[in-house]
Structures are given as structure tokens and as C-alpha cells.
Design a protein around this nucleic acid. Structure first.
Lengths: 134, 134
DNA sequence: ACTTGACCTGGAGTTAACTCCAGGTGCTAG
DNA sequence: CTAGCACCTGGAGTTAACTCCAGGTCAAGT
């Protein structure tokens, strides 16, 4: 699969895909004779994983470490698990903070709703008053 | 309240507080005769709000817009509400993505748990075998 | 009087994560 | 055979959000 298709499929720009390879987040992708990248199934799986983790804000350097361990084989299983657990912990914390902010936003939006209603009521009273005055 | 106390109270560095003021996120803070910032209650409330929003990832330029509208008074209520609703929507989307990533992480951690168990079992079998062999 | 420490300013530097670009190669359709 | 893409590389530029720094003021303690 060529870079443009991969880019299309995962919504990552070709530049980003090459960048990920440069920094060692994706191990060197196979090339066709002419030097053009030809992503295989394993590459795609890795890209999907990276995309998922990045979307949630996991930092690239942590992912590089993790993937380095994956490549070292079974002896690193416990270390990898520890990394994921730590990142899971951080993720949950961030989500809790976001939930708090969401509550604040809802509270404020609700205040604005009420303010808008009050404004409208005042407007209506004014209209009625004027109608009576005529 | 001096900048060091505010910094302490909200966990934002003095540099960050001055930076927020420079870019117009906090309206100009009053000074004592000697030119030193003296944060009042309104400043603190604004800082708390900003901190809460920033923690959830709301971008600074959006907050600058929002706060500019707050300062323009009641005529901007609907516009402000629209901003908060839009940010709320984006926040929910991000949280949903994070939840998906959390599920993937849990799945992977679980796989590692099983892998570790298997490893241990194999180890135990080996030990038992050796014990019998003796 | 002098040192210390908190504060000030304007401006430069940093970090993460891309994103863009110039200059070059190589298939393919007209 | 040549025009037009899609691809390549190494390196530079960008963006958001800080963070740091040099050089200066000022009040308080010794």
C-alpha cells in the first residue's frame, strides 16, 4: 500500500507518516524497487495503534519507547505493561479533569439560557406595555 | 494579593500569569504605588476560570475572544453562549475519543496480564518437573 | 550603607508535533 | 518523448503555550 492510500485511510498526512518513520515510531517501511514505500499489514496495524494513542494525547516519546520494547520481544512484556498502566492512569486523570470542566461549562451555559429567557420576558413585557398604551 | 501568592494558589507560574496578562487573557491587573501587581477578587475568579478551561484543553485564543465578550457586557450573551456550546461539543468529542483509547489500553493491559500469567505457569511447570526429576 | 529577595519589563528561547519546501527521480498517458 | 503526477530526501519553518533571561527598581533586614 502506497503512502497516499495509507494517508487517506488513517487521516494522517504523508508528511506525518514519513515523520513518524524518521523518528522511529514506525520501523522502517519496506520499499519497492524504485524506492517507494510499500506499507504492509503490520505497518498498518502499528499506524492504527499510534493514531489511536496519539488522539488521546499520549506523547510520542512514550510511544517510541513502548514500540522499541515491542520490537525487543517477550522479555519486555512487564515493562510494556507498566508503561500502558502509567499512561492509562494519566489518561483517566485527564478525563476526570475534563469532566469537571464539562460540568462548569454546562453550568455556565445554563446560566446563559436563563439570562436569555429573562431578556426575552422583559422584551415581551415591554411589547405588551406599548400595545396597551396605544 | 501579590503574584507569588496567586501563583501558589492556582499552580500557575508568575511568568504564566504575566504572560496571560500580556496577551489579554486577564485584563490589566491593578498595581500598588510601586508598580507591583495586586490581584483582586475578580482577577482571581477569572484566573480560576481560565485555569479550569485550559486544563481541559480549550485554546487560549478562544478564551481571549470569550473574555473580550464578557467585558463588552450583556449584549454579547448569546454569542458567549454559542462559544461555550461549541467548546462543550469539542470537549465531549475529545472525551469520547479518550474513552475509546482507554478501552484499547485496558484490552492491551489485560492481554499482558494473561501473557504474564502464562509465563508464570510455564515457569511453575518447569520447577515442578525439575523437582520430580530430582 | 549594603545585601537580599520579590517584583518589574521587553524580548528571546524552548518544546512537541507537525508541516512545508526545494530539488530530484521515475512511471504513465497523450 | 515529454508533461504531469506521486513519490523521494534532508532540512527549515510553524504553531501553541509557555519559560527563561538580562537588566533594573524597590523595601526590608543587619
Amino acid at each position: 500500500m502506497k503512502i497516499a492510500e495509507v494517508s487517506e485511510k488513517y487521516g494522517l498526512s504523508p508528511d506525518t507518516l514519513r515523520y513518524y518513520e524518521r523518528i522511529g515510531l514506525i520501523s522502517t517501511v519496506n520499499r519497492k524497487e524504485n524506492g517507494i514505500r510499500d506499507y504492509d499489514e503490520a505497518d498498518l496495524q502499528r499506524i492504527e495503534f499510534i493514531k489511536c494513542m496519539r488522539r488521546a494525547g499520549l506523547p510520542i516519546d512514550v510511544l517510541i519507547d513502548y514500540i522499541g520494547l515491542v520490537e525487543q520481544g517477550d522479555s519486555t512484556i512487564e515493562e510494556r505493561k507498566a508503561i500502558l498502566q502509567e499512561q492509562r492512569r494519566l489518561l483517566v486523570t485527564r478525563m476526570e479533569e475534563m469532566q469537571q470542566t464539562l460540568n462548569v461549562l454546562d453550568y455556565k451555559i445554563n446560566l446563559y439560557d436563563e439570562a436569555v429567557l429573562k431578556k426575552e420576558k422583559a422584551m415581551n413585557r415591554k411589547i405588551v406595555k406599548e400595545a396597551i398604551a396605544e
